[in-house]
Every structure is written in C-alpha cells, then in structure tokens.
C-alpha cells in the first residue's frame, strides 16, 4: 500500500551481502583505490625487493654523503657510506611487519576486552573499563621506551610494547558497538530463539560491530608504523635490522650537509601511512551505515 511496500521484485537485485555493497562503494573512491594500489606495491617491494636489489644495507659500499642519483646509487649513501635505497627496502619489511603485528595485537586485545565488557555489562564491564582507563592514562611512548630499554629491543618486544599501549581505542569502540547492538531487537529475538552467549557474541553481534572496528584497525596499522618509527628514531630499536625511523635518527646530525638522508626515509613513512589512512577513510565511507541505509 505504501511506497515502500510496492518496491518489490523488479528493482531489487537479490543476494547482496552488505559487505559486497560496501566493496562496490569503496571501489568508487578513487583516492582510496590509488592508495590501495600503492600499498600493494610497497608490500610487494618489501617482500621481493631484497631479491631484486641484493645490496646489504649494513655494508659500507661507497663514500659517505653521495647524493641521490650520483655514482649509481639511486637514493645516495648515508654518513657511513651505506646504500640508502637498500635501507629503505629493508626498512619497509620492519615497518610493515611491526605495523601489522602490533595492530593485530591491539585489535585482538581491544576487541576481546570491549566485546566482553559490552556484552556482559555489570561488574565485568566495570572492571574491564577501569583496566582500559588505566592503560589510557599511561604515557604511551614513554612506557614503550622503558619496556624496550629494560626488556631488550627485539622485534618481538618492540611489537609487544606498541600493542600493549594502543588497544584502548579499539576496546572503547568495540564496547560501545556491543552495548548498542545487544539492545537491538534482532539480538533479543536471537536470544529468545535459543542462541547461546557464544553464538550471540561471535556470530550475531560481531559481524554487525565490525565496520567501525575495521576502520579503526586500518588506522592502528598506520599509527603502529609511526610509533615504531618514533622508537627507532630515538635509537630504541633492534640493532640487527634497519628501520626507517632509525635511518632518520642516525643521520639527523648531518641534516645541513645531507638533508636527503633524513627526507627520503621520512617520505617513505609518510607515503605508507598516508595510503593506509586513505584506505581507512575509504573503508569508513563505504562501511558507514548512515550513508547507505534507507
């Protein structure tokens, strides 16, 4: 009878999961698509680069401060005469590895804490949210610096130190999504028709809570990369690997003579994180229900 009621078979295409619609929305976002392509290239370079360009980033291969393009070194050499391009390629591995694993860790902790707090509420929520608040108060970078300095600067410890201080935002978002969705009538109906708590948490609520979590996870990868760059800039890094922040940190005394040794790795970080945030924005627009529904 009403307008909606008449909108039946013809003008609707069946069988489209909301996530498929989101992907179609995402594809129309040019900036995000370009960023996705650039990110794939960076990832590809990090994995296969060392095979194609087999110069050891630690080896002193030429005179120091040879500018980019001169003497056959595409990006020049640093203060010890080491090849900068090789440092960038090897640094990408470290940055992306730490970025992904620290983000994974914080999303894992954050979603677990947030989901349990939001679903069960009561004293469980109270305790978990106090703990979250506690981690929110810690001065993140200082705390990570102390962990790395005290317990060793392996990649594992660096990842841990980043993950342990950055999960609170994910926990807050997850909790508020669970609080909202658990009151919705389809969750109530599912519970009334015999679903167990585990089913409600993982199969009913989680898929519907995912959009903002996915967006936050994408942003987490970017901020973990920045975080690692900050630590290694200060020299708190695994001495056995090259990382972008560490190249900047070790060359910063020479910025007057060789600005490029600082500018180039900075650009590498900047472009990587920029692309990640563009993809995050694209995901946000694509997954935001307010833009799509009704």
């Amino acid at each position: 009878m009403s307008d909606m009621e008449q909108r039946t078979t013809q003008d609707i295409i069946a069988e489209r999961h909301p996530f498929i619609e989101a992907w179609q929305m995402f594809r129309r976002n040019h900036a995000a698509m370009v960023a996705l392509v650039v990110l794939s290239l960076i990832g590809f370079g990090a994995i296969f680069g060392p095979l194609v360009y087999p110069i050891d980033p630690f080896e002193m291969v030429w005179t120091p401060f040879s500018p980019p393009g001169v003497d056959g070194f595409i990006l020049g050499t640093d203060y010890l005469g080491r090849d900068l391009l090789s440092a960038i390629i090897h640094g990408a591995r470290v940055s992306i590895l730490i970025g992904l694993s620290a983000a994974f860790m914080s999303v894992f902790i954050g979603v677990s804490v947030g989901a349990i707090a939001g679903f069960y509420r009561g004293w469980v929520e109270e305790v978990l949210m106090r703990i979250t608040e506690f981690f929110q108060v810690l001065p993140t970078l200082l705390f990570s610096m102390v962990i790395v300095a005290l317990f060793g600067s392996s990649l594992m410890m660096i990842t841990f130190s980043i993950g342990i201080v950055s999960w609170t935002a994910v926990a807050r978002i997850t909790r508020s999504e669970y609080l909202r969705i658990r009151e919705l009538e389809y969750v109530m109906a599912s519970r009334a028709s015999g679903s167990t708590d585990a089913k409600l948490i993982f199969k009913v609520i989680l898929p519907n809570a995912l959009p903002p979590i996915i967006v936050q996870a994408a942003l987490m990868v970017g901020s973990a990369i920045l975080f690692e760059a900050g630590l290694s800039f200060l020299g708190l890094t695994d001495p056995n690997v090259v990382s972008w922040g560490q190249v900047i940190g070790s060359n910063r005394q020479y910025i007057l003579d060789a600005g490029y040794t600082v500018t180039i790795p900075g650009i590498a970080i900047f472009i990587t994180v920029l692309c990640i945030s563009l993809v995050g924005d694209g995901l946000n627009d694509a997954l935001n229900p307010r833009l799509r529904q009704r």
Partner: peptide, 29 residues
C-alpha cells in the same frame, strides 16, 4: 514461546539472508 518486536528496521539481522534468519531458531534447537 517466541517474540515479535516493534521496530521493523532493528528486528532483523542486517548481515544475514532472510532464509537463514528464519532457519536460525531451528538450527539452534
């Protein structure tokens, strides 16, 4: 005993096919 709720926009899980929503109680039991 089963329930039917008020808000037609919140009473169905947006991420599930309609047949799965109707089949869900029978799967649970």
């Amino acid at each position: 005993m089963q329930m039917v709720f008020q808000d037609p926009f919140a009473s169905l899980n947006p991420q599930m096919l309609l047949k799965d929503q109707v089949a869900d109680p029978m799967r649970n039991y």
